[in-house]
Design a protein around this nucleic acid. Structure first.
Lengths: 138, 138
DNA sequence: TCTTGACTTAGACATTGTCTAATGTAGGAT
DNA sequence: ATCCTACATTAGACAATGTCTAAGTCAAGA
C-alpha cells in the first residue's frame, strides 16, 4: 500500500496530508471499513480531516481501481483495499465480520447462455453467509 | 401471491387494507421495487397508506420468508416476491434493471474448506453484472 | 355489538451520503 | 526561494433511506 501514493502521484494526484492518512488507514489485510470508520481512524492521525474529504478520497480510489466498494448488508458501504486480487466475501450473519475468500472455478461460467437474457455479462460478485467461529460457539 | 394473504392469516396476521395493497403491489414476476416504489404504487390503490406501514409490512414479510431483500447497488434495498424458488440476480451496470436468473451447479460447493475459516457457511448470494440488451445497443 | 390488542398514522429523528461556496495549499513556474 | 493557480479541503446545508414514538383506529374474537 505504501507505493500506492507514488502510483497515484504518477497519475497526477496531489499528495496531501489527508490523502496520506486515508491511504494509511486502508493499509492491511482483511480491512473492510465503512466510510465513517475510515473517517474516525483518519481523524486520530489528522484531527481536522473532514467527512467530505474522506468520502471524496474513497470515491476517487474506487474510480482508479485501487480499492473496492463492498455492500454486504444494505447499510453503509465498506471499502476493501484488496482490489488487485480477485476475491469474494464471507460474512458472518450474526456479527457482520467479513473475510476475503477465494472460491474455485470460473464463477461466470455457471450462468448458462439461456439465462443471460441478452446481457453482456462482465462480472460476478459472490457473498457467502454463515456463522463465524465466535458466533457459532456462543 | 393471492393465497399469500390466506397463509399469513393462518399465522395470526390481521388482514388490513394496507397489507392487502402491499401484497398486491408485490404480485408478479421480475418485481424488484424499493420500499418507496412499493409505497408509491400502494398509495395509488390506497392513498392514505403511510410510509411506516409499508416499511413495517415489508419487514414482516421478509421475516416470514415470503419475500427477499436484495441490495444490488448499495442504495435502497429492493424487495423480491420470488422467495420460494432459489435464484440469483443479473443486474445492468448502466440502467440498474434486475432479472432473476438460475445458475447451474451447487454454488456453495465452490468454496473449499480451507477457505471457510471455521465459518458454518449456510447461504450464498450471487450478483452477475453486465449490460442489458438496451444499454449495450445504445 | 363490544372490547382489546394489534395495526396505522404523521412526523420527528437517525444514518449514510452528496453538494456548495469559501478557504487553503501542492507543486510547477519564475 | 517565492509566487501562482488550479486542485483540494472544509463546514455545514441538503438529500435519500430507514427507524421510532405516541396517539388514534380497527379486525376479529367474545
Amino acid at each position: 500500500m505504501s507505493d500506492l501514493l507514488e502510483r497515484l502521484r504518477g497519475r497526477g494526484w496531489r499528495l496531501t496530508a489527508q490523502r496520506r492518512v486515508v491511504a494509511e488507514v486502508l493499509d492491511g489485510d482483511h480491512v473492510h471499513y465503512t466510510a465513517d470508520e475510515v473517517h474516525a481512524r483518519a481523524a486520530e492521525l489528522l484531527p481536522e480531516i473532514s467527512r467530505a474529504t474522506v468520502y471524496n478520497t474513497l470515491g476517487e480510489l474506487v474510480s482508479l481501481g485501487e480499492i473496492m466498494e463492498v455492500s454486504t448488508d444494505g447499510r453503509a458501504k465498506r471499502y476493501d483495499p484488496n482490489a488487485h486480487h480477485a476475491h469474494q466475501h464471507l460474512v458472518c450473519s450474526q456479527c457482520g465480520t467479513i473475510r476475503d475468500v477465494h472460491p474455485l472455478g470460473d464463477l461466470l461460467a455457471g450462468l448458462p447462455a439461456e439465462e443471460r437474457f441478452g446481457f453482456q455479462v462482465a462480472a460476478v460478485e459472490v457473498t457467502y453467509r454463515g456463522l463465524c467461529p465466535g458466533c457459532s460457539a456462543a
